[in-house]
Amino acid sequence: MTLTILRTGPLTVIKDEGRPGHAGQGVAPSGAVDRGAYARANELVGNPRGAAVLECTLGGLRVRFDEPATVALTGTDAVLTVDGTRTAVEEVVSVPAGAEVAVTMPRRGLRSYLAVRGGLAVPAVLGSRSTDRLAGIGPAKPAVGDTLPIGPAPTAPSSVDVPPQAGDPDAPLEVDLGPRDDWFTAAAIETLLSAEFTVSPSSDSVGLRLDGPVLARARTDELPSEGVVRGSVQVPPDGHPIVFQADHPVTGGYPVIAVLTPAAADRAAQARPGARLRFVVAPA
């Protein structure tokens, strides 16, 4: 069974759970930018954890399957259409062989996840089928005309009764302060937790660049490079924070004032340029 790319939209890449354990080789985990939406798409079609899917930015994706397929779309309010017929959001959809499956542009959110029962069976690199845009490893970005193999369908039934995820998309992003919050003034910490920041157009799957008030340092000495994780809020010398996303570097040379919780990092993955973000300390 195969999937043929008819249109990619602004950006479509292949993603799975990532490739942890290779930091010593200079390779970050990468993986899906919105981990929760990715996992949910696989759950809906009955795939095991780690199956590869298509991560589609701002819709526009069109594909065709050569055999009947079972698919699901998660992550945004984008609509999945089958030969022009709209389906419900986060619905398990049966697709006839040869039908054209399309993802509309979402009104809210940034990244949609299209999972097919069986998962994308492209070759793995260092144990993962994720495209890492910073390191330049993993599968190439799908192009129009590409044919991607689909793996065998799992024996477990699809989770058709999973309710849609809930939550306030405008709520502040929860963070844990540190590990270098002591490098900043008390006023900078207060600003981080009270001000509003705007997502810059230069943001991508490596990091969200934020415009807004400057976070002033209490220390001006140079910090040796140290390991960073997804959700790290790193502050360069200009005082404007960067929130690292899935394709972040392995190390960073600027102090990290806070780290988003995993759920908050997923929500940040859906923030479009121009979106306004606020931060709050996660409850103990």
Rank of each mutant, 00 (worst) to 15 (best):
H248V: 09
P224D: 01
P142S: 00
V229C: 13
P164Q: 06
F184M: 07
T191H: 14
A216W: 15
G212S: 13
G239H: 01
L223C: 11
A171R: 05
L210I: 11
P152A: 12
F184P: 02
D161V: 05
E222G: 02
P213H: 10
P172D: 00
R219S: 10
V160T: 15
A156D: 13
V250N: 08
T147S: 04
V243S: 06
V144Y: 02
D170S: 10
R219M: 01
S225L: 00
I150M: 09
S158I: 00
V228F: 04
G231Y: 00
V243D: 11
G145P: 09
V214F: 12
G252V: 00
V162C: 09
P237H: 00
S202I: 15
T251L: 01
S205F: 14
A156Q: 12
A140N: 03
R209A: 10
G252M: 06
A188H: 07
A171C: 09
V243G: 04
A166Q: 12
G167P: 11
D161N: 10
A166P: 02
D221H: 14
P169T: 06
D247Q: 10
P236K: 03
G151M: 01
A246H: 09
F197A: 03
S205R: 15
E226H: 05
D182A: 15
T191N: 11
A171T: 03
A166D: 04
D181F: 10
D176M: 15
R209F: 11
D161G: 07
I150Y: 06
G231P: 03
V228D: 05
V214G: 02
S203F: 14
R230V: 14
P249S: 06
V199P: 02
P237V: 06
S158Q: 03
D181R: 07
A188E: 10
T185D: 05
H248C: 07
T198D: 10
P179L: 01
G227L: 15
I150R: 09
V229N: 07
P164T: 10
P142K: 04
S232E: 08
R230S: 12
L193F: 03
S200C: 12
D211S: 14
D176H: 13
A186S: 13
L223S: 13
L148Y: 10
S232F: 03
T198N: 02
L193H: 01
I189G: 03
L215M: 12
R180T: 02
A187S: 06
S203K: 13
V144I: 05
V243Q: 11
S232N: 07
G151H: 03
V144Q: 08
P149D: 11
S225V: 10
D176Q: 14
A195P: 08
L192I: 09
S158L: 07
F244M: 15
D211N: 15
I242D: 05
A195W: 00
